[in-house]
C-alpha cells in the first residue's frame, strides 16, 4: 500500500477525456515523478489530489482516507502540501510572515479567531518560522518583502512554507518551469537535500527529463490521460512506449 493510492480515476471535460482509468501508487518516503507530454493530463491529475477537481470516476486515497470531495484546506490539514508551477506566496507580506502563516495553520487549524494576541510575541511560531528559514539558508531575508525576491528565492520560500508544516506528502507541479539552467540545478540540489534530511514523500510533475532523472526513484509516464508505464528511471529511459509518446512515433511511420 502506498501513501497515495489512485484507482481508476477518470475525468471528462465535455467531450474531452482528460483522464481515463488512472491507477497510481506512491510509496512512502520515495520521490515519485509523473511525466508526460503536454496535454497528457498531469496537471488535471494533480488537481484531483488537492481538491481543486473532483474526478468523475475512481478513488484517490491518502493514508487510507479518501480526499475526494474535500476542500483544498482540508486536504492540506490531512498532510498534503502543494508547490505551484509559478511560486504562490504572500507577496505583500514579509518573508518571516510568509513562514509564520503555515505554522499557524498547522498549529491552530483552518480558522482561529486570535484577534487580540500579538503574533510577534508567539515564541513557538516565530521560533519555528525562523528555524525553517535558517534551514533553507534564508535567515538574512526575514524582514524582506516577499514580492521583491528573485524568482529562485520565491520558489525556495514556497517550498520552505510547505515544509514548515511537516507534510507527509509534498506535491510539486513543474517546480522548474521557466527557470534558467542554474536556478533549475539549485532547485534540484535543494530537493535532493530535502529528500536526504527529512522523512517525506515527494510526488513531482515535470516534463524536464533532466530534473526527473536526477530526482525520481519511480516514474509514471502519462499519455493522453492514461498511464503508459510505471517503473524505475533506468527502465523508463529506453522504453519504446515512452519514446513513442514523446517523439510521436507511430506504428505506421515505424
Amino acid at each position: 500500500m502506498g501513501i497515495l493510492e489512485v484507482k481508476g480515476v477518470g475525468k471528462r471535460f465535455g467531450g474531452l477525456h482528460a483522464l481515463s482509468d488512472v491507477n497510481l501508487s506512491v510509496k512512502e518516503n520515495t520521490v515519485h515523478a509523473i511525466i508526460g507530454p503536454n496535454g497528457a493530463g498531469k496537471s488535471t491529475l494533480l488537481n484531483c489530489f488537492v481538491g481543486k477537481l473532483i474526478p468523475d470516476t475512481g478513488s484517490v486515497m491518502f493514508d487510507g482516507q479518501s480526499v475526494l470531495g474535500r476542500k483544498p484546506h482540508e486536504i492540506n490539514q490531512m498532510g498534503i502540501s502543494r508547490v505551484f508551477q509559478t511560486p504562490e506566496i504572500f507577496s505583500d507580506l514579509t518573508v518571516l510572515e510568509n513562514m509564520m502563516i503555515p505554522c499557524f495553520a498547522q498549529r491552530d487549524g483552518a480558522f482561529s479567531m486570535a484577534a487580540y494576541a500579538d503574533m510577534m510575541k508567539d515564541k513557538d511560531i516565530v521560533g519555528r518560522a525562523e528555524a525553517e528559514l535558517e534551514a533553507m539558508n534564508m535567515a538574512d531575508k526575514r524582514e524582506m518583502n516577499a514580492a521583491s525576491m528573485s524568482r529562485g528565492d520565491k520558489r525556495r520560500l514556497e517550498i520552505a512554507m510547505c515544509l514548515s508544516q511537516q507534510p507527509r506528502l509534498l506535491l510539486l507541479d513543474e517546480p522548474t518551469a521557466g527557470m534558467a539552467r542554474a536556478d533549475t540545478n539549485n532547485t534540484i540540489d535543494l530537493l535532493k537535500q530535502i529528500k536526504e534530511e527529512r522523512d517525506i514523500t515527494i510526488a513531482i510533475i515535470e516534463h524536464d527529463m533532466h530534473v526527473v532523472f536526477s530526482l525520481a526513484e519511480r516514474i509514471t509516464v502519462l499519455a493522453q490521460g492514461t498511464p503508459l508505464v510505471e517503473d524505475v528511471p533506468d527502465n523508463i529511459k529506453g522504453h519504446p512506449k515512452v519514446r513513442e509518446a514523446y517523439l510521436g512515433e507511430t506504428q505506421v511511420a515505424a
Binding site: 492540506n76 504562490e88 504572500f90 482561529s112 484577534a115 503574533m119 512554507m161
Partner: peptide, 27 residues
C-alpha cells in the same frame, strides 16, 4: 490589536493570495 494579531495577518493573507492561503490549510 487586530492589525498585530495572527487573525490580522490572515486577513492580509486573504488580500495577498487566497489560493496560497487555501492550499496552506486555512479556510
Amino acid at each position: 490589536r487586530i492589525f498585530r494579531s495572527p487573525f490580522g495577518m490572515m486577513l492580509r493573507a486573504v488580500k495577498s493570495n487566497q489560493q496560497r492561503m487555501n492550499y496552506t490549510g486555512l479556510n
